[in-house]
Amino acid sequence: MEKKVLFLCSQNAARSQMAEAILNIKGRGRFAAYSAGLNPASQIDSFAIEAMKQDDIDISCKVPKSLKEFENVKFDFIITLCDKAINECPSYSSDTITAHWGITDPINFKGADEEKIKFYIKVKKEIMTRINVFLSLPIEKLDKLTLETKLQESEALLKLSQ
């Protein structure tokens, strides 16, 4: 049975959309990924679309979604991608495993278009790396506390390696 994963950030216009698409491809059959925002943008960020296209992943038809759309969905994992989301994330079932991946919002990057796309690609690669670590965990064999600890440890290890 597929585990449900929600990626949560502030606008659901870049990071969480990228994470949803990547996990749905890499974790097909094991995970069903979704994404939402606390204050959804009106559309997906064009630089996020372009960064994903470079890996033949099309998110251009996606739309930002509100967390409210998922209030009756039981998730196995909720992964926040920004500090605002972790601070404002509502409480969920005690069975839900939570983790925080503090990923810089590429929407705030200032620079020429070429510099922006390079930054979005860097963010996408960071998300891919984190998802690869997530997929490598023996999820079926670990209890909730151990999984949360491992997910937080992977956050610390990734920060050290940057």
Rank of each mutant, 00 (worst) to 15 (best):
N24Q: 14
E153S: 14
I103A: 02
K141D: 11
I78K: 13
T80R: 03
K4G: 02
F75C: 06
M18C: 07
L160W: 13
N72P: 09
N39L: 06
K125E: 13
L147M: 09
F119D: 07
T104C: 14
A112H: 12
P90Y: 09
G37L: 02
A14N: 02
F134R: 00
R130T: 05
I78A: 03
C9V: 04
N39W: 14
S60C: 09
S154L: 03
K84H: 09
R28D: 11
K159I: 10
T98R: 08
S16L: 02
E69L: 08
E20A: 01
K150R: 12
A48K: 03
I117L: 06
S10N: 02
A156S: 11
G111N: 05
M1F: 07
E50D: 04
S35T: 06
I78W: 05
P40T: 04
A41H: 02
E50R: 03
N24F: 06
V133Q: 04
N108S: 12
M52A: 03
L137N: 05
T129A: 11
P64R: 12
K3G: 06
K122E: 09
D95Q: 11
V123K: 11
K144H: 10
N132E: 13
S154Y: 15
N132A: 11
P64A: 13
L142D: 12
H100S: 08
Y92C: 04
N39P: 01
K144E: 14
D95E: 13
I57H: 11
I49T: 03
I121M: 10
L38T: 01
I49W: 03
F7W: 04
Y92A: 01
A33T: 08
F134N: 01
D143P: 08
I49A: 00
A99R: 01
D58W: 13
T146C: 11
K141V: 09
F70M: 14
K144S: 06
A19E: 00
I86H: 10
E115Y: 08
L158I: 12
M128F: 10
L157N: 15
K3R: 14
D95H: 13
R15K: 10
M128V: 11
M1A: 07
I86M: 12
L23S: 03
I86Y: 09
C82V: 09
S161T: 10
N24H: 09
E50H: 04
D56S: 15
S94N: 14
E153G: 06
D95C: 08
S46N: 12
K144A: 05
S161V: 14
F109W: 10
L38S: 05
